[in-house]
Design a protein around this nucleic acid. Structure first.
Lengths: 185, 185, 185, 185
DNA sequence: CATGAATGAGGCTTCATTCAT
DNA sequence: GATGAATGAAGCCTCATTCAT
């Protein structure tokens, strides 16, 4: 009968992330999750009483980490480069965010709260990027002939550039070059 | 002979696309689709006998269009700009492709064939981009200090840059600037 | 567009038999049948407007053949042996009859009629066997210490004895021996 | 822990048997089964996750019983008579086995295992019958002029002889007579 | 007649979720 | 809390059957 196993919330989030990355929203079930955690499916309900609550809670957690790291990035010597590095480290946020549209946002009050929190965090991310870009513009190192939103979108899109490099560092360096000065020779 | 068709495949593909874009793979059911088409659910099975068959057939169709258009783009005066314009027009391929990992590739032989076709088409896309970039390199208008794959990834990633512009044209122009010469002033 | 194909009713019965033998009642669909006949599924409905009608019509046809042949058998020199031979030839009636319980006998008036006809034919079979046995009893060549029904059942059960012989004849001979004088040395 | 079971596997098997005997493979659904058991359809899936798994598991169970009883039969004073009695008791195995060809044997690994087990058990049955017959041949009480396989088939075919007797015992006695000494007076 | 098209009914399965221990 | 059991809703798919040409 064994002692009753307790769920380690850290592990819960880890497996949640893995599972979403591997199988996307459609493939994310409590069934699969419980198997990986080695507990009964119903046990998870003692922690999160809805699928959506778990997913959104996890996403908030993830975004909080990124935002926190962005703060550090903005104080770095070369904030844009630091940003790209950060992207390297959290390459999967983007993929994670992809599942958002499929979440039933009215599933429960808790879900609603989390979703709101997520939007705020995304806002923060975007405005932090903008802040960095504005500062660079003032220093004269970033162009001003393109709307700020587009510039920010451009920086964020780099998350998508595939990862065929020996190291995260090498990837960040190459990508930084491109972001900085584009394709031209 | 037989009665006149009430669905044509064009309409079928159109609604398929809309549905996937709105609700993603998880939200794509024959039920939802049939409601939009105003036919019985089972009717769709007369056209595609499996969810996956329809989706993959549609994707192949979409990619074929893109590849065809890329051919034209590569003969344009400014091929890279033409490419970015193309991205503007097919902004959703990327989102569509996102659902690929969740498809059960062994669902049926037809699905397998379509999946293979998709991979080939993606290969073609990638190599067409590379061809364009190589030519530009030879003309001296594209840098050579970054691996070709990364350059290609960079161009493709532009598909992600969000679309807050009055027109597709305006978007393409801005994005082209960035791709060409980067963030720097 | 090809000339419209007509269904050959002989072929229809042949394929019906094959299909039932291969797949049983559950596996017998108009879909499969139409494919084998190379016609559209709906075409079969011009001949038999219900699955059950076709099946029962076929069975009646089959039983009629057997009964007819039994008449001949009963006039043979050794009627019991002739019977066993007949079993060899129509080894599958038994299997065919197995599907009867699963037929919805009230599916249509035609079905009802066929089902009645089948029962009558089965009755005839049984009574022909009994007649043969009675005659043999009168000649002193069949035991009288076992009820006639059981004797008849015994003869009919021989249909089940598996068929691992070079020829139908060889099978019939061996089986006849057993039916005649049993296991004893 | 957890709540008390409402179905036990014995009951599950009983109803499975009844249902198959009444309606055959085609008429065997989890829906019908669940109605008889008074539970939700999906509940059965907690026990057997596929129709085929349940059916084959049940058949294995049934055959195991028969084989076990055959062991006892072979030690009886008159093993052939004991066998016939056994047939009387398990008259429906034969009908059950009839559904075998329609089972999708690749439905799941569990199904495959069960199917293999079934074949082995059938093998065992056949060879136990042969063993009994060989022993009787050595004692001189069974003929040797007919191949063993045919003899075994003959004994097994008796399962089919219909059951119009006051008791199982009476049936077995009559049938034994026939098997032993055939039709002849 | 033959046919292709449409459809509804019915069976299969999987999950999220609830409940009793 | 943890768990095993039960369940309903929802999606998948197949086929008999009907209909219009």
């Amino acid at each position: 009968m064994g002692r009753a196993k307790t769920i380690d919330e850290v592990q819960l989030f880890q497996e949640t992330e893995k599972l979403i990355l591997e199988s996307g929203y459609a493939g994310f079930h409590f069934k699969a999750l419980s198997e990986r955690l080695g507990v009964a499916r119903s046990t998870i309900y003692n922690y999160y009483s809805k699928k959506e609550e778990l997913i959104t809670a996890f996403m908030v957690h993830l975004l909080e980490q990124v935002v926190e790291n962005m703060d550090r990035a903005s104080h770095a010597g070369n904030p844009v480069h630091a940003l790209i590095q950060l992207w390297g480290r959290y390459a999967n946020i983007h993929q994670m965010m992809q599942v958002m549209p499929y979440i039933d946002k009215e599933a429960s009050p808790k879900v609603q709260k989390s979703v709101e929190a997520m939007f705020q965090l995304l806002q923060q991310m975007r405005s932090k990027i903008k802040d960095i870009l504005i500062e660079e513009q003032q220093r004269g190192s970033v162009r001003e002939d393109v709307p700020l939103d587009t510039l920010a979108g451009f920086v964020m899109s780099a998350v998508q550039i595939p990862f065929r490099h020996e190291s995260e560092e090498a990837w960040a360096d190459e990508v930084y070059k491109l972001i900085r000065s584009g394709l031209s020779a």
